[in-house]
Every structure is written in structure tokens, then in C-alpha cells.
């Protein structure tokens, strides 16, 4: 770490010619890598935070379904269940969902079903808990079943688990993509460095002859590659943020839902802004190790 800070603070000797730039394309390559990394990280963090927000809201809510063949009995059972729920400690509120709202909920799949007679739609009771663990849901389910077998408690766990599994898969996929990009970037920097060393071999020999230590020579490469990493990183980040915000504006027009979280949140933005710095440091460290190892082969 001390060496890295020293590399940044010392004035360059500028012995590397700017004309023989074998590594001129490196910032472009790093910018593409950074762009892809940013998209992968943003997608992962956005899905993760979107699902976290969603599940947080759902953890303190349960739904009660009352589905009896007889409409009058359905209404009676719903009233009994509601009374029992409102009398249960830990339940903040409970209300029967209006039949029109239930119709609205199924309309995306079934279309307009308001005129279809005899369609067995359940009565829904929306229950808000004081907090996520305020009520023993298993006991509550048994008590509801005691009123009638037609009353079912749905705490959303089954499909919540699937969604969380999906989020985990997205997270690992993004991590895998970033790892591959990182490895590719390191390989490209190593190739660039070796090409640079070959191009500047005579200059390095002169510097050795003038009494320069390896650290002094390597520092020149450190600084050059740090700048390559920063330039490429910032360019890739700007491009990625542009794509994300443009996508977000399109998604916003489509309506709310999971896709609404495409725009980077403050936390995601902070993580993304840190990426160019990470890219620059990785580029510099890769160059440093490559150059120092190569210099050891020279006398």
C-alpha cells in the first residue's frame, strides 16, 4: 500500500515515449469491460434491493382466502374470520377486499370476468401485522381452519422463496460475469504491459544504465496504467449510467413493478462510482507485478 501511494505522489520521470504507445487501446478496452461490469452489478443490486423492498412489505402482511361454494356461506365465513382476526393480538388491521378489487386482480390473466356468472372467486381478507413476527401464523392458520376448512391463510412464503432464489441466482450470475470480466481485463493488461516493455526495452536499459532502480522504472508504468484504468473506468461508468437512466425512463413509462428498480438507487450508484477506482487499482497492480517480474529478467 505504501508503494502504491508512493507511486501516485512521486513526479514522473517521463522516460517512456508517448509516440510508441502500444497500450493506447487499453483505456477503450477497460471502458468496455467497465460498461459490462456496471450493467451486471447494477442489475444484480437492483434486483436484490427491489426484492428486498418488496419482501419487506410482504413479510408484515398475510392474505386470507375464503372459498365456499355457497355465496351466503362465503359471506358469513368471511365475517366470522374477520371478527376473529381483529380480536387477535398483533394484528394491526384486517379488511375484506372489495369484490371489484378481486376482479381487477385476476383481470390481467382472465380479462373482464365481471359478467361471468358462477365464477368461483374467493373472498380475500387483507391482514396487516403489527410487525413481521407479531403473530404465530401457524396457530392463526389452525384457528381459521377451525372456523371452516374453506378458509386458507396465505403468508406468501412459497412464491416469495422462488423470487428470492431467483434474486440469488441473478446475484451469482452477475458475480460470475464480473469475475470473468476482471480476469479478461487482467489478461489484457498483462499483454499490454509485456508489449509496452518490449517496445520500451531500450529506454528501460538506458534507465538501468543511468542507475535507476526497478522501483523507479516500475513507478512510471504504475502511473501510466493507473491513468489508463481511471480513464477507461470513468468512460465505461458514464456509458453504463447513461444506458441505465435511459432504460429507467422507458421502464417508468411501462408502469410500476419489479422493472421500476432499473434506475440505480443511491446505494447502487455509490457502488458503481467505486468501480472505476477499483478498475484503476487492479490495472495498476497488474501492471506493477508484470513489470517488476519482467525487470527481474534484466540485469
Amino acid at each position: 500500500m505504501k508503494d502504491i501511494v508512493s507511486s501516485l505522489l512521486h513526479r514522473r520521470l517521463d522516460f517512456l515515449s508517448h509516440e510508441a504507445r502500444t497500450d493506447a487501446l487499453l483505456p477503450w478496452v477497460i471502458s468496455v469491460m467497465m460498461f459490462l461490469s456496471c450493467l451486471a452489478v447494477a442489475a444484480s443490486l437492483s434486483v436484490h434491493s427491489g426484492l428486498a423492498q418488496w419482501s419487506e412489505g410482504l413479510e408484515s402482511r398475510v392474505s386470507i382466502q375464503v372459498l365456499s361454494a355457497d355465496v351466503d356461506e362465503n359471506e358469513r365465513l368471511s365475517e366470522d374470520a374477520l371478527k376473529m382476526l381483529l380480536a387477535t393480538p398483533g394484528i394491526r388491521s384486517a379488511s375484506i377486499v372489495a369484490s371489484q378489487e378481486v376482479l381487477d386482480l385476476v383481470s390481467p390473466w382472465l380479462g373482464d370476468v365481471s359478467n361471468i356468472a358462477g365464477l368461483p372467486l374467493p373472498t380475500l381478507i387483507d391482514v396487516e401485522l403489527a410487525n413481521a413476527g407479531a403473530v404465530d401464523l401457524s396457530a392463526l392458520s389452525i384457528r381459521l381452519s377451525a372456523i371452516s376448512d374453506s378458509i386458507k391463510l396465505d403468508n406468501h412464503q412459497a412464491w416469495m422463496r422462488q423470487l428470492l432464489d431467483f434474486a440469488t441466482m441473478i446475484k451469482w450470475a452477475a458475480a460470475g460475469i464480473v469475475l470473468l470480466i476482471l480476469m479478461s481485463t487482467i489478461a489484457i493488461v498483462i499483454f499490454g504491459c509485456r508489449a509496452g516493455l518490449a517496445t520500451h526495452r531500450v529506454s528501460i536499459e538506458i534507465m538501468h544504465q543511468l542507475g535507476a532502480e526497478d522501483s523507479l522504472i516500475a513507478r512510471e508504468f504504475d502511473q501510466r496504467y493507473l491513468m489508463h484504468g481511471l480513464k477507461g473506468g470513468v468512460a465505461g461508468l458514464v456509458l453504463a449510467l447513461t444506458v441505465l437512466y435511459v432504460s429507467a425512463s422507458f421502464v417508468a413509462d411501462l408502469g410500476q413493478g419489479m422493472l421500476a428498480s432499473v434506475a440505480p438507487s443511491g446505494q447502487v450508484l455509490a457502488a458503481l462510482i467505486g468501480l472505476p477506482v477499483v478498475a484503476a487499482v487492479i490495472t495498476m497492480l497488474t501492471a506493477r507485478i508484470t513489470v517488476r517480474r519482467s525487470l527481474l529478467d534484466m540485469l
Partner: peptide, 23 residues
């Protein structure tokens, strides 16, 4: 090898092809 730079500073060399930094 680490001691060489210190000794090289005590030697001045004029190369046949000058070996100057053109930039």
C-alpha cells in the same frame, strides 16, 4: 542485482548510437 544501480551511478557511458530519449 539490487546493489547495481548504486554502482552504475558511478559510471558514465557514452553510447555509439547516443541512446538519448528522443521525446
Amino acid at each position: 542485482r539490487a546493489e547495481l544501480p548504486r554502482l552504475r551511478r558511478r559510471v558514465g557511458v557514452v553510447f555509439q548510437d547516443f541512446r538519448l530519449f528522443d521525446h
